[in-house]
């Protein structure tokens, strides 16, 4: 193995480790936050940045072939779908929780616009 391959391996492994660290911080956030909507904020981090960095590391390690192309597909698919699933979960939470005003402030769109103007 030459020098360039070692550097490639090192970059790939460091990116993988960054991804795993992001997953670990996601777990910490899940146990520290106190309400579901806050916890979801921590959980969505792994869907986007954790997946991107870990798969990017794997791509660099594997080189250019069909596996890399399929990894790009996986990243595109997950980035397209994970916001939608987060939206559905949060919508379920807001529509089924009866004591929502205890946890968070409810505002309509008009009120937010008025606040922005003033």
């Amino acid at each position: 193995m030459g020098m360039i391959e070692w550097i490639r391996l090192l970059i790939g492994l460091s990116l993988l480790i960054i991804g795993v660290v992001i997953f670990a911080s996601e777990i910490i956030g899940i146990f520290k936050m106190k309400y579901v909507l806050n916890r979801m904020h921590a959980a969505a981090m792994g869907d986007t940045l954790g997946l991107l960095s870990s798969l990017l590391g794997l791509m660099i390690i594997s080189g250019l072939n069909f596996t890399t192309l399929k990894m790009v597909f996986v990243i595109a698919f997950m980035w397209f779908t994970s916001p939608v699933s987060s939206h559905l979960i949060s919508r379920m939470e807001t529509s089924t929780n009866e004591s929502l005003s205890y946890y968070c402030e409810e505002m309509t769109l008009k009120e937010i616009e008025e606040e922005d103007v003033t």
């Binding site: 397209f80 779908t81 939608v84 939206h87 559905l88 919508r91 529509s95």
Partner: peptide, 15 residues
């Protein structure tokens, strides 16, 4: 059941 969620519809149209 809430139907016609525009975000889900946009996602499903392309997916």
């Amino acid at each position: 059941e809430p139907k016609k969620d525009p975000i889900l519809q946009f996602c499903a149209r392309y997916l």
